[in-house]
Design a protein around this nucleic acid. Structure first.
Lengths: 202, 202
DNA sequence: ATCCTATGTTAGCATCTACTTACTTACAAG
DNA sequence: CTTGTAAGTAAGTAGATGCTAACATAGGAT
């Protein structure tokens, strides 16, 4: 018995399988056959919905970019203060990584970035956008007095991005034996306290 | 004209080519054919020296582990104070990554860690050893008064490891447009100052 | 000088990869 | 109920990959 799905549903199913498998087998060891087996169709069926594998990755990139942008938008909208927004941005990022653990591997994978220039540029822009948000809110915190000026905003942003990457890697390598958002926010509080921030966790 | 080399020389030549190519094409897109072309022999010649590709990676793992361990040893031996040793450890790590930029990609590559359990365990042990060195010297700095007790040593170590990973990734993605050791040590000084350290750069 | 062997080569195998072609059939619109 | 199309399949392609087998020879020990 062969169940057909409308193209839209099948396409998102394929992309979801790709994101899931990218985490389990690695972004580039991932084959179209793996995806097909995962969702229970033949490998040829994948190419009914995406002309090439690179196009499939581009679609996945769109999905990822959309999710991240939305999450950042919500974080920025949900709190008026720079301090609250900064914490929201980091929390959002941690939650996105928890929901799609392949994210760091995909974002930084040298492999993918080598022969999919479109994807590389898109991701590079995304990461710069995130850094921009962090810098802007750190500057806001300095000028509204909620953070001392012991560090330059740009350096602080780099340290915070590294912090997120660091916990995420530790979380991945350590078989996810702890809560990524919890541990991440705990370390964020440690780092923010060092920055000379007044407010504790919201 | 066909130039033969003694097995020892050829083996190290192969491993060097592997480390170089792992950086350029990625640890797992790397094929035995790439290596062969790089050093000017046929692909089959690789298997004169290593029974399987996995064995080749194990040998590379040995080389990496040896270099890191030696570099850490030198850093620990060259300075008696915990503060000096801490800076030495970080500097050594940055220099090792600069010399072999594939290091982070190899150390954290999900791909390699998937089907080469021996390599994975060896690297996991390595990273824990490094963290152990950092924690020990941070505790030393706290107890000898060269650093305030604003942060727990374990948390500080995690932040420092993240810092190194973070600059290394930024250095890689940004086409190596800056000096990794310089920028890394600059950020280290920023972070150490936040930790409440008295001494500046040595 | 002459062997012998370690270091190479050429040719090939089985398997995997992305992708194609020719055919089938579920399913919704008329 | 018919029918066109879109979503699927089976079977293949060319090229890459890890690895092997059979053969060749450079070059050090004798």
């Amino acid at each position: 018995m062969l169940h057909r799905k409308p193209a839209g549903d099948r396409k998102t199913e394929i992309v979801e399988a790709l994101l899931d498998l990218a985490d389990r087998v690695g972004p580039d060891r991932l084959t179209t056959n793996d995806i097909a087996r995962e969702i229970g169709v033949t490998q040829a069926a994948i190419f009914r919905h995406f002309p090439t594998k690179a196009d499939l990755w581009l679609e996945a990139g769109d999905v990822i970019a959309g999710r991240l942008t939305q999450a950042w938008g919500r974080a920025l909208a949900s709190d008026p203060t720079p301090g609250g927004r900064l914490r929201g941005l980091i929390a959002a990022q941690l939650r996105q990584i928890e929901a799609a653990p392949a994210l760091p591997a995909i974002l930084h994978s040298r492999e993918l970035n080598v022969d999919n220039a479109g994807l590389r540029d898109r991701f590079r822009g995304l990461l710069m956008q995130f850094q921009g948000h962090l810098v802007a809110n750190l500057e806001g915190m300095i000028s509204d007095g909620s953070m001392g000026a012991r560090v330059r905003a740009a350096d602080a942003a780099v340290l915070l991005i590294s912090l997120v990457q660091g916990v995420a890697i530790r979380w991945s390598l350590g078989s996810r034996g702890f809560s990524l958002p919890d541990e991440g926010m705990r370390l964020l509080d440690v780092q923010l306290a060092l920055f000379g921030c007044r407010e504790g966790p919201g």
